[in-house]
Design a protein around this nucleic acid. Sequence first.
DNA 1: CTCATGTCGATACACTGTATTGTCGCTCTA
DNA 2: TAGAGCGACAATACAGTGTATCGACATGAG
Lengths: 236, 236
Amino acid sequence: MTVWDRPEPPHRPVPLDRERIVAAAVALADEGGLAAVSVRKVAARLDAGPMRLYGFISTKDELFDLMMDAVYAEILPGEPPGDWREALHGLAHRTRRAALRHPWLADLLGGRPALGPNALAVSEATLAALDGLADIDTAMRAVETVSAYFTGAIRRELADLRAEHATGLSRSEWQRTRGPYLTGMLDTGRFPALAKAVYDGAHVDAEETFATGLDWVLDAVAARLTGIDGRGAPGR
Amino acid sequence: MTVWDRPEPPHRPVPLDRERIVAAAVALADEGGLAAVSVRKVAARLDAGPMRLYGFISTKDELFDLMMDAVYAEILPGEPPGDWREALHGLAHRTRRAALRHPWLADLLGGRPALGPNALAVSEATLAALDGLADIDTAMRAVETVSAYFTGAIRRELADLRAEHATGLSRSEWQRTRGPYLTGMLDTGRFPALAKAVYDGAHVDAEETFATGLDWVLDAVAARLTGIDGRGAPGR
DNA sequence: CTCATGTCGATACACTGTATTGTCGCTCTA
DNA sequence: TAGAGCGACAATACAGTGTATCGACATGAG
């Protein structure tokens, strides 16, 4: 029985694991946004039937969870930070850069609790950088407050960015599309303060806005961390 | 020709407007989350065919925009705030309460630029409260920073809340579901700082966490607003 | 060599957003 | 008053979605 007689071995299914699945899903999302990630398309990229994936995940949301955690791997600090401020500063900026690389991250950020191993590692590294500087509750508040800030800021930045890009040519095209409505509204005179802000504002670039707001928040944290009794000035 | 001879007039379509459409959509979302809002279901609530809605919106996303703006009406300050801090404080808390009434708001917050009339009115009222206290750019930064904070904080709070509720009975059931995995991970010893935080943390309630973080951020804003030269302490 | 097992793919279902097309009542004109 | 145009509405259609179910089949054990 020569090779010629023997039929080709039956098409063995491609071996699959979560890593390959997530990589395919992330690639799809990078190309076409979260909406482009469908169970069928991910499976197709892996030469598998759609139902195959349900051996590894039990719901599409879980696929999103895995994608999130894959990105948290990019957010992990490369080397131990010098101090707590550098740790939080770095965390915020790395998260932002990850979101710029993977715009769909903005849709997921803060959407569900991040409990994957990489997300936990990020939390660990961050909390560790605050160790000994304050009681645990203050440290957690610090992390949560800063995280809340950059989550919100990143979401807004990417929402704006997407709104611009959606119209086609960025900026000029956008001004022509959204402009008429907005200028129309502002010219009604019902929003004088807003109009002044829009017309007289400096329109600083996104990164600087992000960095500045972050510094404000970090200053607030510093005030509590370095306060004599750990409480700092009373709020309100 | 009596009434009896005359046939019933043909079924006249229910008059429709955006307000009714949005009200129906909001009701559906309140009951079953954003996922429960489908063009068909909204239309069905109004005794209309699905395509009917496309005379008022051109895309489902636009329906979401309208829903958002409807909620912004609830966020508008009832009376003029006493000072800038009260304005921002009130804005944050009203937004949070709106999100607790309409949990789906968390999915939309910060997702797309809010340009509806009510959103603009909210921005106007907020910026107006800061008028004269600083240059325009500083005022905008203040609003954006605080907004970023409470957007992120609200999203996280509702994500956690949803994760708890999803398992069925809140808290105890949740501990039993997510608990095993989390404790398992923490007990590996790979996350000592995180483990300490989870086990020794005080687990303060959500509203206090929100309020405290907000006060921190407001303090940071205050430092810039009342600074002699409007810049306050240099960051980083 | 046979049989049980468990993995994989096909099929199916209920549903989605939206384009297209047809219909029908109203209003304006001759 | 008859007709014609028009605009709003509904029905149908299509391509795609997440996921449950089920049948087949290659692989391992006996």
